[in-house]
Amino acid sequence: MTKWLILFLLPLCLSLALSRIVILYLGGRLLDTPNMRSSHEEPTPRGGGIAILISTLITTIIAVILGYLEERIVFWLIIPISLISLLGICDDFFNLSVKLRLLTQISIATFAVLFLIITEQSWKYPSAQDYIMILAMILFSTWMTNLYNFMDGINGLAALEAISVCMGMIFIYTFQDMHQDSTYIMFIVMACAFGFLFWNFPNAKLFMGDSGSLLLGLSFGLLVIEHSRENYSLTAAWMIMLAVFIVDASYTLFHRIISRQAFSQGHRSHAYQKCARIYKSHTSITLTIVAINSLWLFPLAVATSANILNPLIGLLIAYGPLIFIARKYNAGHPD
């Protein structure tokens, strides 16, 4: 009982309280003013990711001291997501350049991936294929960091995505009786997202900001690749649960690149943003995506992780309709 109070109730309460503190004391300095690229209409404080970061750090430190988590996870996950969140805080305050942000993200992802891989017992005589795999992991982690940031644009979406993905993967990990540390981390992330969600949905009194979306994106990127070399079915399950964010962000960016748009600039041409405008509701679109995660992607992820469904087939079944939706709503096309 004490374990779950620390792993869930503590981060939930911390995130809930600290989010309120951010609103009261930083809201004036971190105010998100609507512009042509925004999906909201009222000036709203941002920086809720600060509450998520502090809550995660406090809970993790306590969990490590009590022996619930191994110290190793601090180096390949907690330190990197803390650094990426600090980068987001700096960007929220000072609007850093795109090049500086990207170089820092790649550096942090490289540190995390190298620590994760090199500390594995199987890492003795690396081959050329191993180095290619490391590069792919670094690029994937960096992309996950950014795509989560891209998809944080309407009320509740980033937090509810984190909650629904964590809930799905916790079930899969628990059902297969595997990777206890990762399961505990997902409980902490889910609890922090719940605490923040109170202030962000359905009516947003606080936005997550880069400090939160970058943290969640890198967290999921590293969790995906944690066991990717030995468990392809589990990796596919992660990719299926994250499919809505991966497809929308990737399809949108791909179209903006091939159509020679200034893809590094802010925009509101993602499918979820277009749907929010068409149907005039953040809440309905956010809840629709949660329903897709729960009713469509979760069963596919379970079947794939249990080897009932071939990983490639599971990914095709999950991604095909989502690509169709992105195309239907002209993701990546300017308004």
Rank of each mutant, 00 (worst) to 15 (best):
L57R: 03
I289C: 10
T235L: 12
Y68G: 12
L253I: 10
F175M: 13
F111T: 09
F194A: 12
N307G: 00
C192P: 04
T235P: 06
H227P: 00
L96Y: 01
A276K: 09
I89Q: 11
A112Y: 04
W296K: 03
M169Q: 06
F115Q: 00
T2F: 10
L10Y: 10
L295V: 12
F115I: 15
Y279T: 01
R268I: 07
K280R: 14
T288R: 09
I23Q: 13
I78S: 01
I132P: 00
A191C: 11
L315F: 07
S38V: 14
L295I: 14
L114S: 04
I258S: 01
G168Q: 00
I73H: 08
W199G: 05
V290P: 06
T145G: 02
L24E: 14
P321G: 02
P126N: 08
T2C: 01
V302R: 05
A109W: 07
T145R: 05
N307Q: 06
Y232L: 15
S141W: 03
L222N: 04
Q273E: 11
A63H: 08
T174L: 14
S19T: 10
W296E: 00
P43C: 06
V22A: 08
A17H: 03
I246L: 15
K3G: 02
L14V: 11
R20E: 15
L234C: 10
S269F: 14
K274N: 02
T2A: 13
R46F: 10
I118Q: 09
P11A: 07
N95Q: 08
D335L: 13
T142Q: 00
L77V: 07
I21L: 15
I325R: 05
I285K: 09
V113Y: 05
S284G: 00
L66Q: 09
G221A: 06
N310Y: 14
F93H: 11
L206E: 04
I73L: 15
